[in-house]
Write a protein that binds this DNA or RNA. Structure first.
Lengths: 189, 189
DNA sequence: TTGGAATGTTAGTGATCACTAACTATCTTC
DNA sequence: GAAGATAGTTAGTGATCACTAACATTCCAA
């Protein structure tokens, strides 16, 4: 593993724990087992190190493919699949989310981190529209319901992100299944 | 307005914008129109200033009262009322949320900020249980559905908090009504 | 009018920060 | 084995940070 890699991984780890401002370049270098000079020689600045790290380690989910190939047009099955895909994507980018959400001056970098949710919203809206034209969904505002679905899962993700000790004792999967059931009953004719 | 008040308000404003670490005591004092010495004489430390500010300006919603007096036992009406109450509470505490969520070292202070969501979850679970015993709700896990409702609104709140320019063009109220409709259809026998 | 509390001013502490200069050591590669 | 790239070491820049000491001022209540 070369110096650049070690530095980027160390930066992500530390910044996810204590924030961009909360970690010094000296500490990142030490955690990477590398001299601080190497950090500046490779990246020029602390901010650039973070940018390059996000660029490289932002997990790029291929959601389009899932929507094209794995849907069954059974609302329950599909929503469960989509929900799982959402959380897998978000979990993989967990640390990056923590970093960019934790510092308002990093708002510019949020663009990248929120690319997938936006894409998913688009795909999900299309899915609901198609389901309605197949007569498997009630007449409703497809985009509004897609956003509701996204919000529910976004809230679930962030509540776990910010409060490791959950507000409830219920297992995550159980709430997830209840919510799928809710959408299925609520949107099926 | 005395010095303490001016300092606490200035601290909340600045910290909500640029984070706890992003604002200096000198800047807070200047924004309050007060000398930096006054800050330390009144609060002793930067952290204590924030703690006292949260203590004093955390909006304490009286949700129990709403649940006792304003419910109509019409699912649609009640969920709309509860959703509105949730967002009003969260909006009032918006800045405090931004501060404590933005800095992981402030995790201890999150307790206070998350008191209301926890209380609301409890009340909502009770409401769903009562509705079921009145035969107005399907057989379902009341707590799981309450959490789903909370997550949906938590996600809505945070997505507005972190991304002022929304991911969608739909007005907030419209999604809110769609989601109430979703719950009403999904949970009514 | 006077005493005391609150506030301001100024100058400073030592620590830490991001970042740099200058020089040396270790590699690989031809 | 020389060249060139990559790394480490050391020492430092100037800035900013939270926080303090010492002294001067303002202002209100008794």
């Amino acid at each position: 593993m070369d110096s650049r890699t070690k530095l980027m991984l160390a930066a992500i780890d530390r910044m996810a724990e204590r924030g961009y401002k909360g970690v010094s370049t000296k500490e990142i270098a030490a955690a990477a087992g590398v001299s601080e000079m190497t950090l500046f020689r490779q990246f020029g600045s602390k901010m650039n190190l973070l940018e390059k790290a996000i660029e490289r380690y932002h997990y790029a989910a291929e959601m389009t493919q899932v929507f094209e190939e794995r849907l069954t047009w059974n609302l329950r099955e599909d929503l469960l699949l989509i929900g799982r895909m959402y959380h897998e994507t978000m979990d993989r980018n967990r640390k990056l989310f923590l970093i960019v959400l934790g510092d308002n001056e990093l708002a510019g970098l949020r663009e990248q981190a929120q690319k997938h949710p936006r894409k998913l919203l688009e795909l999900l809206t299309g899915y609901f529209t198609e389901m309605r034209s197949r007569g498997k969904l009630i007449e409703t505002d497809a985009e509004a319901q897609a956003i509701a679905f996204m919000w529910l899962h976004y809230g679930a993700f962030l509540s776990r992100l910010f409060a490791p000790s959950s507000i409830t004792s219920l297992p995550f999967s159980e709430v997830m299944e209840s919510s799928v059931e809710l959408f299925a009953r609520g949107l099926t004719p």
